[in-house]
Write a protein that binds this DNA or RNA. Structure first.
Length: 648
RNA sequence: GCUGCUGUAGCUCAGGGGUAGAGCACUCCCUUGGUAAGGGAGAGGUCCGGAGUUCAAAUCUCCGCAGCAGCACCA
């Protein structure tokens, strides 16, 4: 038999017979390693222990100590064990796919009846039985036709379809967990007992379209999470509990920021506190925009359908637009208008007024543009995904050869805004041409290349997001995450060769002839609504001082202090701090608790001593200890803190 | 939009075919208390909307609306 040489992570190598499995390699090293081994990385690829090695290779044997591999295997085996449990309880249920995801896995089933919470309990119990049985996991490579015959005979149409989607040259692997078998690429553990029985939990059941396609059947998806041990599971469940407390919908109510109601689904009623955050943020953005060389404009809410037809939005997005038909007295025909779902066509109208020279370019035009989109009901989510919102929108009209520089300038601008707002880190995605799009392939080639080049020149290597671009051009997405880790696109930067063409935007170039400008669509926050939602969750409601709606509460300890309380409040207000008095007939304990819950960053307590010495006792949110500070000093330091970061 | 779940006081929730419940919040009274809930009293409800079943519906059924989770969508 041929000999092969395997090289271990420590650099040593040993010779083995060709075709040896990692399990045998582990056994050749020590009995304990053979028992603890869960998988192996061979030539950089993660395989299970039964995978034969045919040639010289590098090899690393993994145990539960290797987090990445262990968690992947535990979760993947959980998916199989769960599918087996489901089919043991309900043999008629059809299985589909069950990938590892986030902190666990999901598995999609086709079953008439939806799973109930009680069902989940039963499945969990059955899974524990399977784990405790320590059933061996084994694998075989099967001939494609044998797999097809098997799944056709056992009535598993989804598996047959999956089989057909596997490229022709890939070997088809079947995996057994005990007697239960599934088509799978692997790798898997050695036996079911290697899954910790007390470190997984079935979380929820929800529906999902087969293959993510809304024209295909809906399946029942069960989500689970799994970890290496019970403590990690507990930590995760605890994290979710804590994250729920940071939910912007909950904090929005607790901090009295905003509310929403049935009569205006997907639209925000901003309360005084919330509107303070909003306007503070808007003032900041307005200053940043001016400093960034933008001119600010404002355009109509309600625009005749004609413009949307010209821009192409009517054709593509009519279903998602709020249509307003005006039947004026004596009018021969109805005027059909739409609430603007975005601002770009309106900005082109402003650009098109008068003749523009190449000297005017790049022309950076910004608007706090209120938009309305009829979002699908299921998409609405607090103030993060709404039907009425305001973008910090902007369009840069420029020459093709200015795209790269303008993109670099913009990325710089966005970075400084995100930095100021407490997001030094953010993710960038690059989305290229979608299937349905406007514009020729040559134009798309140009746009994609220019954008990508500029992004890389700015020192960013974006995540690729194939086919996700806008219909008129490729885009960069700047992504932030909410309390439980869901992605939200906030900023965006898009190259558009199409709209200037459709709306006939031109400028006079040096050659005296009309030329077509390129349009860069960009939003930094995205929408105020979404960004404030993210801000709330990111800071758990404890907004930076300059953004906090209620910055200081001055609380009396005894009523004799009331006059001085008002004096302190007045002094703070005069210095530009949002301060309010609390002279209610309540104990200081009560007041401290209430304003702490309300996320007020600074509480100043005033009792007899403070009145006498003209001091205040300052307590910062989240801190236990207090400090006694002279009035002048506290006014000065809090006033300094209230200044927005761009003005410091 | 799709699947499932939910909708009872301002909030969080219990209850459940026949007088509507709690805690917190609110109002009033007592209390002037030194850093996360002082004590007492009171007021507060179209039980999401509509239809049906029933002697009787907040409760059961159906249809809507809204919210939640996931999927799909996101100019």
């Amino acid at each position: 038999m041929a000999q092969i040489s395997l090289t271990f992570p420590d650099g040593n190598s040993r010779d083995y017979d060709a075709g040896i499995t990692p399990a045998d390699v582990a056994a050749s090293i020590s009995n304990s390693l053979a028992k603890k081994a869960i998988s192996a990385t061979v030539n950089g690829e993660h395989h299970d222990l039964q995978w034969p090695i045919e040639g010289d290779a590098s090899i690393a044997i993994h145990t539960l100590k290797d987090d990445d591999q262990a968690l992947e295997l535990i979760r993947h085996d959980c998916a199989h064990i769960m599918a087996r449990a489901v089919q043991e309880i309900w043999p008629d249920v059809k299985v589909t796919i069950g990938p590892v995801r986030d902190n666990g896995w999901f598995y999609d089933f086709d079953r008439e009846e939806p799973f109930t919470p009680e069902d989940l309990g039963a499945i969990e119990a059955k899974m524990k039985e399977i784990i405790n049985a320590r059933d061996a996991v084994r694998t075989e490579v099967w001939d494609r036709e044998k797999v097809r015959a098997h799944y056709e005979a056992s009535g598993e149409p989804y598996k047959v379809e999956l089989l057909d989607r596997i490229p022709g040259d890939e070997p088809i692997r079947m995996y057994w967990h005990g007697e239960w078998m599934d088509l799978c690429r692997g790798p898997h553990l050695q036996h079911t007992g290697q899954v910790p029985a007390d470190a997984f939990k079935l979380m929820s059941v929800a529906a999902a379209y087969w293959l993510g396609d809304n024209t295909r059947p809906m399946l029942q998806r069960i989500y689970g999470v799994a970890f290496k041990n019970r403590d990690d599971l507990k930590k995760h469940l605890n994290f979710l509990e804590e994250a729920a407390k940071r939910d912007h919908r909950r904090l929005g109510r607790e901090m009295d920021l905003f509310h929403m109601q049935e009569e205006a689904p997907g639209q925000v009623f901003w309360h005084p506190n919330g509107w303070t955050v909003y306007t503070e943020l808007q003032d900041y953005m307005r200053r940043k925009q001016r400093a960034g060389g933008y001119v600010e404009v404002n355009t109509p809410q309600l625009v005749n359908r004609r413009l949307w037809e010209e821009s192409g939005h009517w054709e593509k997005y009519q279903e998602h637009m709020f249509i307003v038909e005006v039947d004026e007295d004596h009018a021969r025909e109805k005027a059909v208008n739409a609430m603007k779902p975005m601002n770009c066509p309106c900005h082109v109208q402003i650009f098109n007024q008068g003749l523009k020279s190449y000297r005017d370019l790049p022309l950076r035009m910004a608007e706090f543009g209120s938009c309305a989109r009829y979002e699908p009901s299921g998409a609405l989510h607090g103030i993060m995904r709404v039907r009425g919102f305001t973008q910090d929108d902007g369009h840069i009209f420029c020459r093709e050869d200015q795209i790269e520089e303008e993109t670099a300038i913009y990325i710089d601008y966005l970075t400084s805004v995100y930095q100021d707002l407490g997001f030094p880190e953010f993710r960038v995605k690059f989305s290229d041409r979608p299937e349905t799009r406007a514009g020729s392939d040559e134009v798309w080639d140009k746009a994609e290349e220019a954008l990508l080049k500029a992004t890389r020149a700015a020192g960013i290597e974006p995540e690729m997001n194939p086919g996700e671009g806008a219909f008129y051009g490729p885009k960069l997405e700047f992504v932030l995450t909410d309390a439980i880790g869901r992605d939200w696109q906030c900023g965006t930067h898009q190259v558009d060769f199409v709209l200037p063409e459709r709306l006939d935007a031109t400028y006079i170039a040096e050659d005296g002839a009309k030329h077509r400008p390129v349009m860069l669509h960009r939003a930094c926050l995205g929408s105020f609504e979404r960004f404030i939602g993210i801000l709330i969750e990111e800071h758990s409601g404890k907004l930076p001082f300059w953004l906090a709606p209620r910055q200081v509460v001055v609380a009396s300890i005894v009523s004799e202090a009331d006059d001085f309380v008002h004096e302190v409040v007045d002094a703070l207000k005069a210095a530009g701090v949002r301060a309010e008095a609390d002279i209610r007939n309540e104990k200081i304990n009560f007041k401290v608790r209430e304003h702490s819950v309300g996320k007020v960053p600074a509480i100043l307590a005033i009792g007899r001593q403070e009145v006498e010495n003209r001091t205040v006792t300052l307590r910062r949110l989240g801190e236990k200890q207090t400090s006694v500070v002279p009035l002048d000093e506290v006014v000065q330091s809090l006033a300094a803190e209230a200044i927005a970061p761009d003005l410091r």
